[in-house]
Amino acid sequence: MTLPLLVVTAVAAEADAVRAGADPDHVVVEPVGVGPAAAAAGTARLLATGRYQAVISAGIAGGFPGRAPVGSTVIGLRSIAADLGAETPDGFLTVDELGFGTSVLPADPSLVRSLIEALPDAIPGDVVTLSTVTGTAATAERLAASYPQAVAEAMEGFGVAVAAGSLPFAELRTVSNPVGPRDRAAWRLKDAFAALSTASGALWKACG
């Protein structure tokens, strides 16, 4: 029997958008909570109570200007915990630089290739995971400089990747707003949810 694909989102609205486009016979979609800790715990619970062929962290995201415009779809090549580390007088040190582990988890290469083939208009690149969404130009510029391959920021990917362990993992996001000063009125949530539903239609094609 072919195992289903597990797709986890942060909130119910994202899960509904994925379900609207995904194959319900082969794709299980569940919201697991906001932030890397909730995402890791929720994903681990699902993996402990069911069998799946792969895990995808999906939802909406902020896109880095000049890299992933609003309305676009991105495929994460790596999920990076961009605020996991320590502040110092000389700047931020990642957990890698501190010698306490890694802040970078790569997506499964085969799964990424299949997603790129199924979604040829999607933008591949790194997705940074943050516990605090960027709301200033200064933070956006620092992140863009620190992670030159990053195309988007979200809040769950790294946590889902940790929980996935040896199971194939990837991150799929649609961009609702630019990374930078917080302007909720300018967010295009409806467009991002619609793009998420469209992209989700390709998930089983990529993984089945």
Rank of each mutant, 00 (worst) to 15 (best):
V34I: 15
A22L: 09
G208Q: 09
R173E: 06
H26G: 14
A138E: 15
V34W: 04
V112M: 07
S57I: 03
D96C: 06
R188H: 13
R19E: 14
P4S: 11
A20M: 02
S103L: 00
T129L: 04
G165W: 15
A164L: 12
I116L: 13
D83P: 10
M1F: 11
G21T: 02
M1I: 10
E156I: 12
F92Y: 14
A107Y: 01
R173H: 09
A118K: 00
A192E: 08
T139Y: 05
K190L: 12
G208V: 09
V11N: 02
R78L: 01
V179P: 00
V160F: 03
V32T: 11
G66A: 12
A170Q: 06
W204L: 01
I80P: 01
F158Y: 15
I56M: 06
A15Q: 06
D121H: 13
L196P: 00
V95R: 07
T73R: 03
A22Y: 00
P109Q: 11
L5E: 03
G21P: 05
A154Q: 15
T43N: 08
A81L: 11
T136V: 11
T129K: 07
S114Y: 00
S131K: 04
A107I: 01
L77K: 11
W204T: 00
G165T: 13
V128F: 04
G33K: 02
L189W: 07
D126K: 01
R188M: 10
T43E: 03
P148F: 02
A170E: 04
A10Q: 05
V175A: 09
A41L: 15
A145Y: 03
S200V: 03
A44E: 14
A81N: 07
Y52I: 03
A13D: 14
A137R: 15
D90H: 15
V29E: 01
E153M: 02
R45M: 13
R19D: 09
A170F: 08
R184A: 13
G71I: 10
F158Q: 00
L84E: 01
S114V: 02
F158H: 08
T198S: 13
D16H: 04
K190Q: 14
S79Q: 13
T102D: 12
E171G: 08
L167C: 10
A202I: 08
V28R: 14
